[in-house]
């Protein structure tokens, strides 16, 4: 597991490494700021989806140890989200708060994206073991359900910003619907007292 964790850690840094490599080799296109904004945004969404895939993966395969990757993946999603926001604030608008505030109020895709990011902040802050203990497992878990809202906001952000070709954001939307639908299914089954077929092996606590 330690080796796997190190490998996943390294893999999560690859997109950043590629951006840096492109930066040094003149590979960021004619509009580098736009390119970096899009790439960091893509990876925020992808890592959020990967994070949300951990629980279904665990339930379906019974591979419980995989849960130990979840915090790191979530923090990497937050990391790329931070880079995405920093690119917007520093490179794109260079701290022109007036125009950013206008974006935030007038452009709904900015509102959605910012909401998604802000919702990740408390999750990142309470990601340590000490915080889990302080909040208590149940409250911690309730708080961390915010990640569902954050991921939805992220996908809506992408849907609202594309000009004509909705296919890429719809792929993210479909995957997110699948991951959230799985949870809904499990919850419904639990409420009616029937165990889902795949989880009858005892993976459900």
């Amino acid at each position: 597991m330690r080796l796997l964790k190190s490998l996943v850690f390294a893999a999560c840094l690859v997109p950043l490494g590629l951006l840096v490599w492109r930066g040094f080799t003149d590979g960021l296109t004619a509009n580098p700021i736009e390119f970096v904004t899009h790439r960091t945004g893509d990876w925020t969404l992808r890592l959020l989806l990967v994070t949300l895939a951990i629980t279904p993966l665990r339930r379906l395969t019974g591979w419980n140890a995989v849960i130990r990757l979840r915090r790191m993946l979530g923090l990497f999603a937050f990391f790329y989200g931070s880079l995405h926001l920093l690119t917007y604030v520093v490179l794109d608008h260079f701290f022109a708060f007036g125009s950013m505030l206008e974006d935030l109020t007038d452009r709904r895709f900015v509102t959605a994206g910012f909401t998604g990011f802000v919702l990740m902040i408390p999750l990142a802050l309470t990601s340590t073991q000490a915080m889990v203990r302080r909040l208590g497992g149940r409250r911690w878990q309730a708080l961390h359900r915010l990640v569902y809202v954050s991921a939805c906001a992220g996908v809506v952000h992408y849907l609202w910003l594309v000009k004509a070709d909705l296919r890429p954001p719809l792929v993210y939307a479909a995957l997110l619907a699948l991951l959230l639908g799985f949870r809904l299914y499990v919850a419904m089954v639990r409420r009616t007292g029937r165990l889902p077929h795949a989880a009858r092996s005892g993976a459900v606590p």
Binding site: S99, E102, R108
Partner: peptide, 19 residues
């Protein structure tokens, strides 16, 4: 007159940093 998704008040000239 702004576009719903882009402010049209300023622009980025490709190759320059500041809008």
């Amino acid at each position: 007159v702004d576009h719903p998704r882009w402010s049209q008040k300023n622009e980025r000239r490709i190759g320059r940093f500041f809008r």
